[in-house]
Design a protein around this nucleic acid. Structure first.
Lengths: 337, 337
DNA sequence: TGGATAAATGATAGCGCTATCATTTGCGGG
DNA sequence: CCCGCAAATGATAGCGCTATCATTTATCCA
């Protein structure tokens, strides 16, 4: 239908190069380059002439060529398990907010919690020669770790604090988060503890901390409901059917916690008064805004995902910064437990 | 602390080039290039030798150089208002799912609903010579449109269906969505309608449709509560304070709808029985999972963000595909209205 | 007014690959 | 046993920029 609006024919109007601008302005190519990158060192007369030519031709610098010549890509590779999870989306937002004003682009890749895919994505990212890599978690495989090490660029692991990161890490102690929740449940007199979450390393660390706290409090071994990639509703159903007798649940993220609370309501196991002591205590992780809006309001381990992203960007850009930053977490107790 | 784990010293072990691999394997550079890109046309003997050298050196192809030489970057530029909004995160997820298996990388940029920033980000994206641009919405400024047109690459606008897209568009009719909700409210006997949302074009189209339906039903002009960048809770508070007498609200997204319902609950204007006819009917847009878990369950205009992303990726890669795809929407009535 | 210094501009080479064509090698049939 | 063709490999050039040095032009004071 709209022929006249299709992208312009590449033969009719080839994308102009720096050379074309130079010819039009009657200067050498390098001068055009300078006008684009360091306008301050060009006399205003020629600068105006060049800027005019740039405008007339609609010149957009070719950063691919520029990157090759200068060995600077002004890009950062970002690897997340999935972006369709507001918890990581906040982190990507946070790091973008730091990187974009500095002229860095974000190359985004998703591993889908899949080890092979993670390695493939890391290789794909590295082939674009980013100036740094920021990822959620530490590389899962030895090959991935080795690739990153060889790349010779800053690598920031987030949402986790490995003893020995490849290069740098910013996040919190997942094990400790689990322990804090377990201890809280024990103090509140809860007896039959359950953990719902994925099987990735961060979730597993939380699980271990949770178990440790239960053990120290003399409670029976908590149970673990493993779910992969499931929705909040799926998590809720899974807990209710596989561990119906529980009285306290630590959910690996707030979406699961809300799903569980919703399932409890449907099963009529939620007190009509949200302020009452709940039959089943539920604590999530992440502190989604939704958790504050839900009824009962959701207790949670608060993590500032955006702050993690911002800090990660700063570590990525400045190798002089401390290489291990613990941003901590906070147990926020609300109505749900 | 962990000196030995810092990225390897660039002087000690320079990142190996294709040339280095060629020398090690005793072949010409172009043969290495072929082993990487078209292993089928290399004899298995030399291929094995080259692959061995690649492994030994830990060679990762430099796609920046490759892109410059081949004029193919295998990348797609993606521009969203913000990624920290699950509605768009789903779209990014969807398009990534199509693009990544094909070897394309996603370069992500955020406009923050800011016109100037949108143009800056478009320029930044185009300077990396992506093979296509996928964006939420149509370019806001004439300059942005012109840049995109000149780039001579596929451009897919999403979440919106302009009459005359720069190149292609996939989404739904926002105006119609507003009309459907307005009509629904009118039929349900609601009289004082309110719209909450941002001031961007898509929200405005919904608003216009909403007004049109109200007018046709003989209702008083709906009121519009403009909020920029606010949280769900902020949206809820804004509606309650500025239009306390409303009996039906169309929220521009489910997060706002949930925020409003939560505020209504706090103001004691929510019937304890979620199945009862609500004092204030609320309809959102997007169909977040949270909306199904909330009590009352949230009525909404269902949009499949991931499907939009997938379709956009397909249009971006295949210029032969139809250039205007209406994925539609559905009014899902639940407890909230 | 000359000469030293700074400011402005340019010439040259090369970043690490791939497109394109040229050459060599392998191989079956006349 | 050599020709012709396909398969395999290589030589050359260049993608569009920027780093680096060289050169020219303006500037200022002795």
């Amino acid at each position: 239908m709209n022929m006249e609006n299709r992208p312009s024919d590449p033969l009719k109007s080839p994308v102009p190069t720096l050379m074309a601008v130079a010819r039009m302005a009657g200067v050498s190519p390098i001068t055009v380059s300078r006008v684009v990158r360091r306008p301050d060192i060009v006399s205003s007369a020629t600068r105006l002439r060049v800027e005019d030519a740039i405008r007339k031709l609609g010149y957009v610098p070719n950063m691919v060529a520029g990157s090759l010549a200068s060995a600077r890509t002004k890009s950062v590779g970002v690897l997340v398990p999935t972006i369709a999870n507001s918890i990581f989306a906040d982190t990507v937002q946070g790091l973008s907010d730091v990187l974009e004003p500095l002229g860095f682009s974000v190359i985004l890749a998703q591993s889908g919690y899949d080890d092979r895919r993670e390695d493939r994505m890391l290789a794909a990212l590295l082939s674009r020669r980013p100036e740094a890599i920021i990822m959620v978690g530490a590389p899962v495989t030895a090959e991935g770790t080795e690739m990153l090490r060889r790349a010779g660029i800053p690598v920031v692991e987030t949402w986790e604090l490995p003893e020995v990161p490849v290069d740098a890490a910013v996040g919190f102690d997942n094990h400790d988060a689990g322990r804090v929740v377990g201890r809280h449940f024990a103090k509140a007199g809860r007896r039959r503890l359950v953990f719902v979450g994925g099987g990735d390393r961060r979730a597993t660390q939380r699980w271990h901390g949770f178990v440790e706290a239960a053990r120290q409090a003399g409670l029976a071994e908590p149970r673990r409901v493993l779910i992969e990639w499931q929705s909040g509703a799926g998590a809720g159903a899974a807990v209710l059917t596989s561990t119906p007798d529980t009285d306290a649940v630590f959910a690996a993220n707030d979406a699961y916690a809300i799903g569980l609370l919703s399932a409890l309501r449907r099963a009529n196991r939620l007190d009509p008064d949200p302020a009452a002591v709940p039959q089943v205590a539920v604590v999530g992780l992440g502190d989604l805004e939704m958790g504050r809006l839900f009824s009962p309001t959701v207790s949670t381990i608060r993590i500032d995902g955006a702050a993690i992203g911002r800090a990660a960007a700063e570590l990525a850009l400045d190798p002089a910064k401390p290489r291990r930053v613990d941003l901590g977490f906070a147990l926020i107790l609300r109505e749900s437990g």
